[in-house]
Design a protein around this nucleic acid. Sequence first.
DNA 1: GTTCTGTACGAAACCGGTTTCGTAAATAAA
DNA 2: TTTATTTACGAAACCGGTTTCGTACAGAAC
Lengths: 340, 340
Amino acid sequence: MKEKVTNVTIKMLANQLGLSISTVSKAISDSHEISAATKQRVNDLVEKLNYKPNPYASSLRTRNSKTIGVVLPEVADSFFAQAINGIESVAEEKGYHVLIYLSHESFEREEQIIKDFESGRVDGVLISVAKETEQHKHIDTLLEKKIPLVFFDRVIDEVATTKIITDDYEAAFTATEHLIKQGYKQVLFLSFSQILSISCKRLEGYKKALYDNTIKFSSGNVLRFSNDAKKDYSNLLRKLTSLKKGIGVLASVEKLALPVYQACEELQLPIPQDVGLISFSNLDSAAFLHPPLTTITQPAFEMGKAAAALLLKALERKNFELTDEEIVIPSVMIVRKSTL
Amino acid sequence: MKEKVTNVTIKMLANQLGLSISTVSKAISDSHEISAATKQRVNDLVEKLNYKPNPYASSLRTRNSKTIGVVLPEVADSFFAQAINGIESVAEEKGYHVLIYLSHESFEREEQIIKDFESGRVDGVLISVAKETEQHKHIDTLLEKKIPLVFFDRVIDEVATTKIITDDYEAAFTATEHLIKQGYKQVLFLSFSQILSISCKRLEGYKKALYDNTIKFSSGNVLRFSNDAKKDYSNLLRKLTSLKKGIGVLASVEKLALPVYQACEELQLPIPQDVGLISFSNLDSAAFLHPPLTTITQPAFEMGKAAAALLLKALERKNFELTDEEIVIPSVMIVRKSTL
DNA sequence: GTTCTGTACGAAACCGGTTTCGTAAATAAA
DNA sequence: TTTATTTACGAAACCGGTTTCGTACAGAAC
């Protein structure tokens, strides 16, 4: 009762047609070796029997699977959700399949996933690394095996392949300067990783804006978020309490914005009067938050699309290799009420 | 320069060890036929050469791929994002791989995806159908091929397999009654499909609540959302304008909630005073919207997890079949300021 | 000593395609 | 007419594993 239904194979086609297996195979792939008449007969039977070639048999012989692996830290983040959309749209168009893996921000998990790819399960890889990831041996090993990989958003600078990023430094600079111009005397930077390239760049942009506005950088104004949401939240409360009013807050990643709303509510610090908030975020609901959230919105869909397009180009074109370069797609700041 | 690096194969292991291929294969799978000493030698070399068995060769012979297919209408919806998380968590644990496909709410696309699965690419399928889907021949055909499939959330009642759903009828009933109890004289139902089982059930729950409260049902109060966001929005504007104040709105799906915020803002109809809003939604930001959104929150993660767990059980246990039943995981209503 | 049983392994078929290479017949070139 | 090509197809190797089946040998049973 549970045994699989035997699928129709190319052998069955060949037998029914009185042709050889190789002839059928060639007919299906529209080889010039096969006459039009024979192709017609073959295709008719393919249609009639609803023949679906076994993809794994084909993959085994041809050494490619028409499958790409996508490694994400998580999926419950609008950025990644939109990025998947972009990736899927080009994969679909080119007839590729997408295997999805979540690292849950864990380096070990990411390492396991990447190591599995050495098996040849995927033709290429798109990755946005975990917040913990600082080494890149796992990725180097994969590249040595000539499995193309492109980074998007969360990249590792030291790895020599193509990276699709946004203008993190500039965006953070703009955001910080915006807060300063709006009159916030101090600016907090909510950091979610001290390791990630994007975090570092955003922090640098923040620092530069402070510098340009002759505000002294204080490491105490950089709040590091860990995995412990409770502790992070109480740190945030403490920090906000300790400061005078007129605090600007730059959340360097989407998930850090909502805790600020919550904390301000709890502490009765009205946004934007006492606290100005701007966040890197792709939330559709940003415009309807209370108050509407000023955001740095990343071109998530486009980044996913660009990354996938490049990867597939590298897979399809034998004379195209992924060079060590950064492709920057700019973010846009959308000013709303949370910053006056 | 582009040719793939030849991976180490089981044959290379066998040669280096002076053993036969079959012995090595059995050693790796820890067969009782092989002596402990030999297993040790084999595993040592596996480690040393970083041998990764080709998954497609293995799939070909064993006729299973340790891969499941997940078909979603979209991914930029908190429900599906969380569901993926649930699915991935159990797939990961059981060593399964997950292929993701988006139907983008198109029946044709969904059909293509499902048809591809007839090739044997996946061992089993999880699906939440497109809003357009009313036929189910594509799914029947798959089931005839003995490829297990479980529905989650957006199910097709007529297909005889397991369905993981939430209590749509009751939740909509509760939501509607809540609006009525809060004093809204009329209740609008924002519908996003006339076909989907969940939509119908939610509509039924809505009707029942009206009936129980002796409010006459009017089909004019059911607003159908199409794919044309602009047209939908202007319909919504028109409807809200035409009604007296004190309108309750039940958004039967997450994406319909934000347009209501926008329309109320545009029409200067304060929520919750003039318009009460409740929505099926899993948005984390619901609590921080302006005003905070009362939601029916579905157990998305749990539903994904349950669906995946059941599917994998059907795949692993030969004496377990997916019966034609519904497993209901209840939603919870979280009352916030958008409904007084 | 003979038969039986169990252990440890190897040869080969097999999964279902793709690809190489060989060849008979038809056609073109000389 | 003979030779060179082209057309259309088939046999078989191949991809890299898994699985079946056969067997040599050691020790146990009789």
